[in-house]
């Protein structure tokens, strides 16, 4: 029977979709504290694609890999609740300030350590940057093909995978031998909800450093319930060149960040009374702006 080793790449992101007025501080910087941190939506779509392969081939193993601060372990738990088998948190101060290229490099080093995989699936892009770069860059670093904008995995066997892609002006069905990296589009199906049994089972799953922090008997936990421990890798756990990590490994630098100031116009303010709107429409028609 077929079974696949699947790696899902996921990112914890600030929920930039719900930016309220308090999201910006008085000095114009972003107030991250008020933005909830969520599982990047398209990465959840990616997890769903992986789960569908596992539905079909139950022996398959899904490993969720994320890079970020310690609290990014939250999304690994979210992944467990939905059906992921294993979770790895790639976390180290040395990763701070990574641009997409340095991020891709770090992720590719972690994937090389996982070593054995058939498919890598990730979201097309993350909502905090919208760059859509990390997927293709990881594929390039691993020297494997990429299939971007996947809407549906139509068929998979040990020899090849068939994927429907959603393009700007149409669709394309492509096939490719494994291993391959797939980025999943926002038009793909949403992820299934949490499974109640899995939620009970994994709600205490956490990383070693968190166990230590809370003063729990982490060794006992580790030995008794291996599923309750999230793997935590730093730079000492992966084979990497330090110059390619973090800020130093990032070719792009942020020169400056500005609050955008648009040229204010003298606006004409009117209320929604019939006569005012009638006058406005007349003015627009008379000046040939509309009509």
């Amino acid at each position: 029977m077929n079974a696949f080793k699947i790696i899902v790449l996921a990112k914890q992101v600030p929920d930039t979709r719900n930016v309220g007025k308090d999201a910006m501080k008085a000095d114009g910087t972003v107030n991250r504290a008020v933005l909830p941190a969520i599982f990047n939506p398209e990465d959840l779509h990616a997890l769903e694609q992986a789960l569908r392969i596992k539905d079909q081939f139950p022996e398959s193993i899904i490993t969720l890999l994320t890079m970020g601060p310690v609290r990014a372990a939250e999304i690994l738990r979210e992944g467990f609740y939905r059906g992921a088998d294993d979770g790895i948190l790639l976390t180290d101060r040395a990763f701070a300030g990574s641009d997409t290229l340095a991020t891709s490099y770090s992720l590719s080093c972690a994937i090389k350590k996982i070593k054995d995989f058939d498919i890598i699936i990730c979201g097309r892009q993350a909502i905090d940057g919208d760059t859509a770069q990390v997927g293709p860059q990881v594929a390039e670093k691993l020297h494997i093909p990429q299939i971007t904008y996947c809407e549906e995995i139509q068929a998979i066997d040990k020899k090849k995978i068939t994927v429907k892609r959603r393009l700007e002006r149409g669709v394309e069905v492509v096939e490719c031998a494994l291993p391959v990296l797939i980025t999943v589009n926002n038009s793909a199906p949403h992820c299934r909800p949490r499974n109640a049994k899995r939620l009970m089972k994994f709600k205490h799953a956490t990383t070693m450093s968190k166990h230590q922090e809370t003063g729990g008997d982490y060794l006992a936990t580790e030995n008794a319930n291996t599923h309750l421990s999230i793997k935590e890798w730093g730079i000492s756990n992966i084979d990497c060149e330090h110059v390619q990590l973090g800020l130093a490994g990032s070719p792009t630098k942020v020169k400056k960040v500005d609050n955008i100031v648009f040229q204010s116009k003298e606006s004409k303010r009117i209320d929604d009374f019939d006569e005012d709107i009638s006058l406005l429409m007349k003015e627009l028609i008379d000046s040939h702006i509309i009509g």
């Binding site: 979709r17 070719p251 630098k253 942020v254 020169k255 400056k256 960040v257 500005d258």
Partner: peptide
């Protein structure tokens, strides 16, 4: 950047 709440100048 950042969901369009700020504008960033990036250089290489």
């Amino acid at each position: 950047a950042f969901g369009g709440n700020i504008i960033a100048t990036i250089i290489n």
